[in-house]
């Protein structure tokens, strides 16, 4: 399983990240968050070669002017580095749909991958990643994740510390 993360290149405006930051600030949840970077996340499962994954990331999922991509192995290992409730300066919140919840973008990606000429059965899950920096703790991040970034009725989130 691969995780493809799409980010806005630094020289371009990340309006979605800025919007989340202003939401956090105006919600009164925390005053410690200084910056939010938004990334979209595609979790792709199927018998794909690394080349094919690269092609999907570069030709389909990212915009080659304003966006870049990062491919990682996606699996249970990721959930290991949970935060303690001490302050950290950087963290990532990942939000994905719970199993069984309709993921409309996913079916579009499956179609579009076929259009690329990759005729393989794949499964796609979509999600969001928010990279936050500032004065953060597990409590703050949990509150942000629950109150602003996800609805735990249909989505689940993970919090990871990042370097």
């Amino acid at each position: 399983m691969f995780g493809i993360e799409i980010f806005t290149k630094t020289k371009y405006k990340d309006s979605r990240g800025e919007h989340v930051l202003s939401d956090i600030n105006s919600s009164g949840v925390s005053k410690g968050v200084k910056k939010v970077k938004y990334c979209s996340l595609y979790i792709v499962d199927g018998n794909l070669s690394l080349n094919e994954i690269r092609m999907i990331a570069s030709c389909l999922l990212s915009d080659n002017i304003t966006e870049g991509y990062k491919i990682t192995k996606y699996g249970s290992k990721n959930s290991k580095s949970y935060l303690n409730n001490i302050f950290v300066s950087k963290a990532m919140i990942e939000v994905v749909y719970k199993k069984g919840v309709t993921d409309t973008v996913s079916s579009s990606v499956v179609k579009a991958v076929k259009d690329l000429g990759i005729n393989k059965d794949i499964k796609v899950k979509t999600g969001h990643r928010y990279y936050l920096s500032g004065k953060l703790s597990k409590t703050i991040l949990d509150t942000i994740a629950c109150k602003l970034l996800s609805n735990t009725l249909i989505q689940e989130y993970k919090i990871k510390s990042v370097k």
Binding site: C59, L60, V105, S108, V109, A112, D115, L116
Partner: peptide, 19 residues
């Protein structure tokens, strides 16, 4: 087109280009 999923016009642009 295709809900503007991924990004606006992207999936249709690819489809036209490829097909």
């Amino acid at each position: 087109s295709y809900g503007d999923d991924i990004a606006s016009g992207k999936i249709l642009a690819n489809e036209i280009k490829n097909k």
